[in-house]
Design a protein around this nucleic acid. Structure first.
Lengths: 185, 185
DNA sequence: CCCTAAGGTGAGTCGGGTTCCGTTTATGGG
DNA sequence: CCCATAAACGGAACCCGACTCACCTTAGGG
């Protein structure tokens, strides 16, 4: 790949991230291209569709989040690690409104564009759940994919005062996950 | 309102319901108008925007669902009534794919178009929760509005096998709601 | 330095919601 | 019964935004 092509690709991703995470999640392609200093044609040379660009930005954010579970599991008991990760997602949904929409799109839809991100996030949750089950602190039979869905609804909250609501319902979910566990905390 | 106008309004709602609940939830306005035997101009005489028409169809469906809680509370203990209502929502999400999307739109977004439906549904959940709290079977401090959000994610599930997932996570939610109640069942 | 394939451009297409205004029609008073 | 008139209707035109394509520019190896 030519040097200028790589540069433009990066510029587009940066412009899109800037737009999505700090403001309107539905910035027009013309606007994104303009911010990146290129024309729309160039945007489409690098990304199949507008949605593909969105997906790539979000995938990178999700990848960063997915690095947390191993760290949390090393530092806390599984049950607490799970609780903290759930809250971490809620917190991230709070920066700008972009990240919340990102997480919601990934978690609450079936769009094939987000398959990668969804899989990655489900795997992260699976690790936390498995550790919790092994320690007898979490009920068995819950998959990361399933948990992801409930979280999608939470991260999509936008109304005023949503953050308190999100924390509250996350606590309910967490309690539900412990309900019926071998050794509930 | 003139008789023919009322007839056309009904025809439009019927056509839209038909389209949304049995097939593609994003039928074009031309298509809906055609099915109703009118032109687009007429559609726009009766509904501000396409979304307003969608909202009206969904509001009617939601109103029907919201009639259930009083009946359930008369027939079952509060805790069981709550459980059954949650499952009722999941079931309704399964007919066609339209109803699921309807419920998701209403529950998981903040679109002002769905304000009425959202309020109505939150009130229904509030009644169930309040009865549960009064009976000591449900934890205190959870509002219908909050619960609505978690349900939004669930009703929006579309992947294959989603119904099992939905039932499972609904059970988790329900357990979480009982966790810490005065007299957990 | 030049050749060429990779890369870039942006006016144009296309699809879908919305608007606008000329035409048609229901309906109530004469 | 018929006309007046306001309400309702039709559908072509418009707008907006994602996407395409035919042509131009340029990096960079030989």
């Amino acid at each position: 790949m030519r040097a200028d092509a790589r540069r433009n690709r990066e510029a587009l991703l940066a412009a899109a991230r800037e737009a999505f995470l700090t403001g309107d999640a539905d910035a027009h392609v013309e606007e994104i291209a303009r911010r990146a200093g290129v024309a729309v044609g160039t945007l489409y040379r690098h990304f199949e569709t507008r949605e593909a660009l969105v997906a790539e930005v979000y995938r990178q954010e999700v990848a960063a989040l997915c690095a947390a579970p191993p760290r949390l599991l090393a530092e806390y008991p599984p049950d607490e690690a799970l609780r903290r990760f759930l809250l971490l997602l809620v917190e991230h949904s709070a920066v700008g409104k972009g990240m919340g929409e990102a997480l919601e799109s990934i978690m609450a839809t079936d769009s094939p564009v987000f398959d990668d991100a969804r899989t990655e996030m489900a795997r992260a949750l699976d690790a936390l759940l498995a550790a919790g089950v092994a320690a007898g602190a979490v009920r068995d039979g819950v998959s990361g994919r399933v948990l992801l869905r409930a979280l999608g609804g939470i991260c999509g909250m936008r109304a005023k005062g949503w953050e308190d609501d999100a924390v509250r319902i996350t606590a309910i979910l967490h309690d539900g996950l412990r309900y019926g566990a071998k050794h509930p905390g």
